[in-house]
Write a protein that binds this DNA or RNA. Structure first.
Length: 604
RNA sequence: CGGGGCGUAGCGCAGCCUGGUAGCGCACCUGCCUUGGGCGCAGGGGGUCGUAGGUUCAAAUCCUAUCGCCCCGACCA
């Protein structure tokens, strides 16, 4: 069977040759006005999707075919490492309260009531459901490890759905969960996912990169994101062309060039200097004739917390950065493990006894420890300031700054932490070459969860000594429509897009130039049938349309190969057109199957 | 949630300021014509002007409310 070729690609959709004239492929000459990004415009124009509501889309014939091909690849690879489940999307409130996420997820969780008035919600992910199964069923270390997954719709009431399929409210997700007896086991499950994900994205034809990611405030240890570079993306990733370093902005670091510290003035003690009207870092630096690198930027935040009794309390958190550096709020929030907001003017006055613009770390009693802070304000200092001397900061007095400030000597930070956003061109922490920053779409995420759910939901098994232990978990996600979206973003031009053959709705479109010409028509039918028999997903454009119409549609809808059947059939020849390069090649009709198999093998 | 924009035929838009017959291009239907890049000619169908209320002799147009969609920001295990 020539189908053996398909063990290579493994994407054959169904054993049916489709005739364009009988299909519903509503292509549009113009994109809807509200589409901004390329993938959104083209998927609508190509008749893949139609919008139902903000962030909610219907998949038409072509879209669904591509979608199913992606799912098939994901399923095949996941089946190699885990077991597929099918879990409900409709969850009882209690389940989410058990994990503490009912409150945590806030407005992003879709909530509804059943007829009896019972609170329900729509699943955003399935940690709770999977863990509850594990909770009821897993008893012994002998049953571990387990990897369970599903491919099912997820619901998130996003504050702002956008960019077509990139950020939506209902989407298809492959989510899997691993349960291991110990951290070493989790390492294995994690690695299996890492490798499976690489195979999945490779087979889907994506040019992706794997970046170190922040595991957030969830207490996880290790996390990687699978990213596809595209200007349409919402994430920023930092990477190095010189080595394989790559991380997202929340995690990225860089090697900083050494800074020349100022020489102490006077007796070396903090020295008050008059800086009338000079508020910004730039103004002060220029006024004093120093570089912003020798200045301290003082940022004031509040963490609003609610204690067990429901009482609100706010804690002041002050951050010191090098004058020319930007605070990364994700790093900051991860460090303090809570949500924060900038201080308001009265709060600044209350803590510093000074107007904004002249803030500094002196004269305030800071907490000694991040956890046991005793209600005192926290002073977090960015690592770039560690070891620096004779810096300049605000004096907490209008129109005055202080010179000769040395952290650890003149004031005592609660903690040093990496709080800085890397900027493009800084040196790679591994090899020193300049770093680049790109926007990207996150198509997959693997994450060592740890004991977050085992603990909150009370998951225990007996180990080989008969002792109760908490299994350790990992969770792993892939956004199905994001694969499609990223593929479209990755391959498009003015006329449309081309998908990698493995995820294209059809691999080949056979386009007879004139269906009223009997020789052309017969040859087209013959070619389409032979390709179909050889295992290709093929569509025959048998519409009685002018060639221009067929070519335009073929260019638009993402099919990677076109066979144009025209006058040259009388010589026994047709044209094979590669959509991506527009390379055209005359091929003998009798050799067409072998030819395409060869092309596919090279491109696939 | 803050800021901005838009809802008129399937799609893209004009008309609104200055109230008085609802229009254009594409798509669609019929016929003829044409057949290697959205061809041409002729004829034709299709719109509660997002919704509700108000002002007016008269509202797509002015006023109020409301719903929806898009963009920027905030948010995003």
């Amino acid at each position: 069977m020539p189908v053996s070729r398909y063990s290579l690609l493994g994407t054959r959709y169904s054993k049916t040759m489709h005739r364009w004239s009988e299909l519903f492929i509503p292509t549009l000459r113009e994109a809807p006005a509200d589409a901004e990004v390329a993938s959104h415009k083209f998927l609508v124009r190509a008749g893949y999707i139609r919008q139902l509501a903000a962030g909610i889309y219907s998949y038409l014939f072509l879209g669904n075919r591509s979608f199913n091909k992606i799912i098939r690849i994901v399923r095949e690879e996941m089946d190699k490492i885990g077991q597929e489940y099918y879990l409900p999307a409709l969850h009882p409130r209690e389940l989410w309260e058990a994990s503490g996420r009912y409150a945590l997820m806030g407005e992003n969780l879709f909530r509804l009531k059943d007829r009896k008035g019972t609170d329900m919600c729509l699943g955003m992910t399935e940690e709770e459901v999977m863990t509850s199964i594990a909770l009821k069923e897993l008893r012994s270390y002998k049953q571990l490890p387990q990897i369970w997954y599903q491919i099912a719709p997820k619901f998130r009431d996003e504050p702002r759905p956008r960019s077509g399929l990139l950020r939506v409210r209902q989407f298809m997700m492959k989510d899997s969960y691993s349960f291991d007896i110990d951290a070493a086991g989790l390492d294995v499950s994690y690695k299996k996912h890492y490798e499976a994900y690489c195979r999945i994205f490779d087979r889907c034809g994506l040019k992706y990169m794997v970046v170190e990611a922040d595991s957030g405030a969830m207490g996880g240890k290790e996390s990687h994101e699978f990213m596809v570079r595209t200007p349409a993306g919402e994430d920023q990733i930092v990477s190095c062309d010189g080595c394989d370093y790559a991380a997202n902005m929340e995690k990225a670091t860089s090697k900083l060039e050494a800074v020349t510290d100022l020489v102490a003035e006077g007796d070396g003690k903090p020295l008050l200097v008059h800086t009338p009207g000079q508020k910004t870092i730039e103004e002060v630096a220029r006024y004093l004739g120093v570089s912003p690198k020798n200045k301290i930027k003082t940022l004031a935040y509040m963490a609003d917390e609610v204690d067990e009794k429901g009482k609100k309390k706010s804690r002041a958190i002050v951050v010191l950065m090098r004058g020319d550096h930007q605070l990364n709020e994700a790093k900051f929030n991860a460090t303090v493990a809570t949500a924060t907001r900038p201080m308001e003017e009265p709060e600044i006055e209350a803590l510093f006894n000074s107007p904004a613009g002249y803030l500094g770390p002196l004269g305030i009693e800071w907490a000694r420890d991040l956890k046991n802070h005793g209600g005192k304000p926290l002073l977090l200092v960015d690592k770039a300031l560690e070891g620096r001397v004779n810096l300049i900061a605000g004096a907490n007095k209008k129109d005055y700054h202080l010179k000769n400030l040395t952290p650890g000597k003149d004031f005592h930070p609660t903690a040093y932490a990496d709080l800085r956003s890397v900027t493009a061109g800084e040196a790679c922490p591994n090899c020193g070459k300049p770093l680049r920053i790109d926007t990207a779409v996150e198509v997959g995420h693997i994450f060592k969860l740890g004991y977050r759910y085992s603990e909150s939901m009370g998951l225990r098994v007996l180990d080989r000594n008969g002792k109760e232990v908490m299994p350790i978990m990992g969770c792993y996600g892939i956004g199905i429509e994001r694969i499609l979206t990223a593929a479209v973003e990755q391959g498009n031009d003015n006329d449309g897009f081309w998908l990698p053959a493995a995820i294209a709705p059809f691999e080949v479109v056979v386009a007879p130039v004139n269906v009223k010409d009997e020789a052309v028509r017969n040859a087209s039918e013959d070619i389409a049938k032979r390709l179909e028999a050889a295992g290709f997903d093929v569509v025959l454009d048998d519409r009685d349309e002018r060639p221009g119409v067929k070519f335009k549609d073929a260019d638009l809808v993402g099919i990677p190969f076109r066979i144009t059947v025209g006058k040259k059939v009388t010589e026994g020849t047709v044209e094979v057109v590669l959509r991506e390069t527009r390379e055209v090649c005359d091929v003998t009709i009798s050799a067409i199957v072998e030819y395409l198999q060869g092309v596919l093998r090279r491109s696939g």
